[in-house]
Design a protein around this nucleic acid. Structure first.
Lengths: 245, 245
DNA sequence: CCCCGTCCCCAACAATTGTTGGTTGCAGGG
DNA sequence: CCCTGCAACCAACAATTGTTGGGGACGGGG
């Protein structure tokens, strides 16, 4: 019974940290009341700027990235529906990376005042927000393990498993995985786009994934999880992470 | 004048987030009052356990790491003097990685009650603690960029620059860098130990580093920073990160 | 309609990195 | 004293990954 109680992706996401009260849910509905749309490949904020708002993803995919002097790009985080960008951003000031959309997105700006209200006056929500930042950090660690110590094919499979589990935690009926170009995929995995294509076609040949117009689907979760040695515990989702779908 | 006001490494570290009051400093002195020693290569806590205490490093080096089913190890974070392990650890429960010493260490156990007191009753300290967790996350992102998009020699040089800057921020008189074996270095960088040795001797030949009984020193900070394309902004240390030494 | 850009795909070759199997030097234990 | 284990070091070879240069499919704009 991890059935979240409504259609609010933020509520669904935070529900994974523990149950919320009806009053919390009402407050979260207010938070997402006024969304806006953004096209793919637009920046929300760039390296060096001072952040003004916190952003919440309602649909689509957003990423954190850095561009090196030699022009190479590294995508260092993927934000999916229900994810919040930089809760405590006001503390650090100057951004040390950029945030941009990967797909067309529906987003919400959340003001500092709203954040402060949630943190100060809604203890269950505060706890859930902390939980989500800790999970973000755990994901970062797992990506590091992935890049450093897994073969590229396992690494890519592992990424697919992670995104699948994260989407499942928010929307059991989510559509296809990863509407990304192979170059974006490569920038996530730290490999070249040519190699990404090699590895992806390898996974396809093994029938671990299927691809249809640059969308990935996982026909057999159990098998690809085994291949990737995916252990979902770092997502701290409880049983939701383990269930095949 | 980023001269921290005393010999307390925790105070020195937190001072980088902004000035503290004398009362804060007194409180921080109490926190580190009762240290204990630990040998190199001992675990503080292992994957799967439920954490009881928060730990603070007073001297020596501690790391977070994961071990994969195939026996490979990935070191995903380095904790230096003044660093705190898992401030909010109680929220997640079960550890998704292990924490262990790399060198002989002096450490402090901090109880949950102390943490709660610091967070609830000392606003400047609370802000500084949040700052430090955000910096930890920024470091994780930079390591990811490092592994994914820099050549191994630049990557290793970048790590040296980072550790140098972090040690400087806490102790301007710190001794030599990185008392690590080449295998530990390799586990940080995500390369094999043989390759670590190749790369390290390459840096030595370029006279970017000197090594004496497995300790690294940087004879010319400016030059190695240029080589590594090191931009210290992600450490959020203010001018301390930029000064050569 | 064509042109253009983008993306997927592929092959050949170059560069980097991993693996294996050594030698050496050193420190500690018996 | 020798023996042992560990870590640095090295060379040769294997495997992985990057780079370059290209072809083909597709959609949008003129």
């Amino acid at each position: 019974m991890t059935h979240t109680p409504n259609e609010n992706v933020l509520a669904r996401k935070l529900w994974n940290a523990g149950p919320l009260d009806p009053e919390d849910l009402r407050r979260l509905d207010q938070v997402i009341a006024d969304p806006f749309e953004l096209d793919a490949r637009e920046d929300l904020i760039q390296h060096g700027e001072d952040p003004q708002n916190v952003h919440l993803v309602l649909s689509g995919m957003v990423c954190r990235y850095k561009v090196l002097p030699n022009g190479k790009r590294a995508i260092v985080a993927l934000m999916l529906p229900g994810d919040i960008c930089d809760l405590h951003v006001a503390i650090l000031g100057r951004m040390d990376h950029s945030i941009g959309t990967l797909t067309d997105c529906r987003l919400v700006k959340i003001s500092r005042r709203t954040i402060d209200d949630l943190l100060d006056n809604h203890p269950r929500i505060r706890r859930a927000l902390f939980w989500s930042t800790l999970v973000d950090e755990a994901i970062l660690r797992e990506w590091l393990v992935n890049m450093g110590r897994r073969r590229a094919d396992q690494q890519m499979a592992h990424l697919f498993c992670e995104v699948h589990a994260r989407l499942n935690a928010v929307d059991r009926m989510h559509g296809a995985l990863l509407p990304l170009t192979q170059e974006e995929l490569a920038d996530i995995l730290g490999i070249s786009s040519v190699h990404a294509q090699r590895v992806l076609s390898g996974l396809r040949k093994k029938e671990l994934v299927t691809v249809q117009d640059s969308r990935v689907a996982l026909p057999d979760i159990r098998r690809i999880r085994e291949f990737a040695q995916f252990e979902g515990d770092y997502l701290h989702l409880g049983e939701a992470a383990d269930s095949g779908d």
